[in-house]
């Protein structure tokens, strides 16, 4: 495995789950919980004759950013499409729970200064959602994670990172939307129904999954940033994600609450407003949407470099 310094300059997209987890926190601070040596794999897959992984396709652990504990959850897309099963789901849910318990212990131990030691949870998504081999257990795991995310609200911030090859789709798209802050790279993709499934159900005229450029225009980081689904857009480096997390962990909860997509009447009204706008625009392509939100010659945004895009792009104002 690359050392921490090498990881910082590595592409987030091309790294594996364990490398991302190690590189996202302070140097030498990452400790993996339920590591491969614990052999905590799925009990369902062997029965079906499917290959198993010692970590069930998810890396969880604890690291530090400054004096703050950071609970890291990192999905591995190459193992059964990063799908969430019973074991990987439990690892995800209980890592967040551990974050909440840690907050209570910190409050007890540092009644004066607990706020500057407030823990954070970071989830790197690389998944198509539920693992169909373990369907019910996997779906329950989704529900459990969302439930714990609600418990964590206004207690510990939960930050989503989306910059992996697979992106974040299916049930996990809902989970990402339920977190406090979403950080994406331009190669990250976020959605509910994946491109291939839309094509299968609605036909090629509706959505051509083989049109990669269109898929990225519609689900990719740049579009999600303009639309406000993603709170931040960063470059495809582990370093870039780590620096952004570093910035977010210090934010007060009033501000973090404003980044949320769901969970309040105001959020619901905003989402309804977005539906009205969609009816008004009646878009044929994501480019129409960019134009509507005030980008002149929106098609030129496509070919800009990251820095130029960040300067030029006009984002949807959240009312």
């Amino acid at each position: 495995m690359l050392n921490w310094e090498e990881l910082q300059e590595s592409s987030f997209l091309e790294s594996n789950a364990r490398e991302r987890a190690k590189g996202l926190v302070d140097k030498g601070s990452f400790v993996e919980l339920l590591n491969p040596r614990d052999r905590f794999h799925s009990p369902h897959l062997p029965v079906l004759g499917e290959a198993i992984a010692l970590d069930d396709g998810i890396v969880v652990g604890i690291g530090k950013i400054g004096i703050r504990p950071v609970f890291v959850i990192s999905q591995e897309g190459r193992f059964i499409g990063g799908s969430l099963g019973e074991v990987s789901g439990a690892k995800m849910a209980y890592t967040i729970k551990l974050g909440l318990e840690t907050l209570e212990r910190i409050k007890e131990k540092y009644p004066e200064s607990w706020e500057e030691r407030r823990p954070t949870v970071v989830i790197s998504f690389e998944t198509g959602g539920v693992r169909l081999h373990e369907a019910n257990a996997g779906l329950l795991a989704h529900a459990e994670v969302m439930d714990i995310i609600q418990d964590a609200r206004k207690k510990i911030p939960i930050i989503s990172l989306i910059g992996s090859k697979l992106g974040c789709f299916g049930g996990m798209g809902f989970v990402a939307a339920a977190t406090d802050v979403i950080i994406m790279s331009e190669f990250g993709r976020l959605g509910l129904t994946g491109p291939e499934v839309i094509e299968q159900e609605m036909g090629k005229d509706e959505f051509d999954a083989s049109n990669r450029a269109m898929v990225y225009r519609t689900t990719g980081g740049r579009h999600k940033y303009i639309l406000g689904d993603s709170n931040y857009l960063v470059q495809d480096k582990i370093n870039a994600f780590r620096e952004k997390i570093q910035e977010v962990v210090h934010l007060p909860f009033d501000q973090i609450e404003q980044y949320r997509r769901i969970g309040s009447l105001q959020n619901v009204l905003q989402q309804m407003e977005l539906i009205n706008e969609a009816l008004e625009i009646n878009p044929n392509d994501a480019i129409d949407v960019w134009g509507f939100y005030g980008n002149e010659n929106p098609e030129t945004l496509l070919d800009l470099s990251f820095d130029q895009f960040m300067q030029k792009a006009v984002r949807r104002e959240i009312r």
Binding site: M1, N16, P36, R37, A51, I52, A53, L54, G57, R78
Partner: peptide, 13 residues
Amino acid sequence: HIGVVGSGDLEVL
């Protein structure tokens, strides 16, 4: 430990 159990791949402990 190294590797990911991807298609056509393996992990070694």
